[in-house]
Amino acid sequence: MGRIQLDKVNKVFGDVEVIPPLDLSIEDGEFVVFVGPSGCGKSTLLRMIAGLEDLTTGAIAIDGGDVTEVPPSKRGLAMVFQSYALYPHMTVRKNIAFPMRMAGIDEATQKAKIDAAAKSLNLTDYLDRKPGQLSGGQRQRVAIGRAIVREPAAFLFDEPLSNLDAALRVGMRLEIMELHKKLATTMIYVTHDQVEAMTMADKIVVLQAGVIEQVGSPLELYHAPRNKFVAGFIGSPKMNLIEGPEAAKHDANTIGIRPEHLTVSTTEGTWKGRVGVAEHLGSDTFIHVHDTGLMDMMTVRITGDIAVKHGDDIYLTPLADQMHRFGADGLRIA
């Protein structure tokens, strides 16, 4: 079981309130992603759940039991660090065995679990190596192995993929998702990368400056961002946010339209602009459009390709039903 409840959790470092009082509940078996820009307090929040950081005020409960004052090892949680944090002086086998040895589990059980974990993580051939002799991806898997064998109530991941190169990252992302499907254990995953959040999460928690901006499924966040921050943060390329008279036409302070919700023409359309850079991805093309008079630069995403050159005139038409409207307070207008 791994139901985690945060009740007015608050953290102050010196005189900086990094996390203003915050409530959140995480259901058993959920894959929850904390996403937000760097420095917004994701790690701090995760570390408070882990017990590595004291709460200034508030309470944390796991499966209904208050763990606010319980030390990290007694919370039944396992953490995978960004730096992997393997024990450099121990072999892979000893690293994975470590939490079991601390828990006083007998050798035979330890061995069985190590072998099973190593098998599922493709580490069998590396069990007698030291972490220094492994690649980044292998180290990451050892860190995961060390977490799995504890059979925790929940896994905590702090940006586990950010030290890996892009190709490896996609692979590890899938492995972690498969692990979640297989174990069906609660996972809390911290990242600043909204693509990771969108692809992995059952539930995304968007944070900014320690405040929860929105909680919801990836598609809820995509289709109905609660405010301008979430609208701009979720989705790639970023949503185009337009202020001023054009927004006023729609009875809003700001209107938002995603690059994929604009149709493009070289002859006619609602808004006129000039083609800047075009990023060709093969399947898609991102076109940067300047001089629309609406915002600095608008991004359009089209499927396939279009015959436009740098400096050409271009016409854009938003899909009316895909337009997001925000009020002066930045909140979504339904």
Binding site: G51, P71, S73, F81, A85, L86, Y87, F98
Partner: peptide, 27 residues
């Protein structure tokens, strides 16, 4: 010594004395 390693030890159930004996002194 990276603090993460000590914290991983704390998560894994090390006591303060254990941290010194199992991690600090060997490293």
């Amino acid at each position: 010594i990276p603090k993460d390693i000590i914290e991983a030890g704390q998560m894994d159930g090390l006591t303060t004395w254990g941290e010194v004996k199992e991690i600090l002194v060997p490293l």
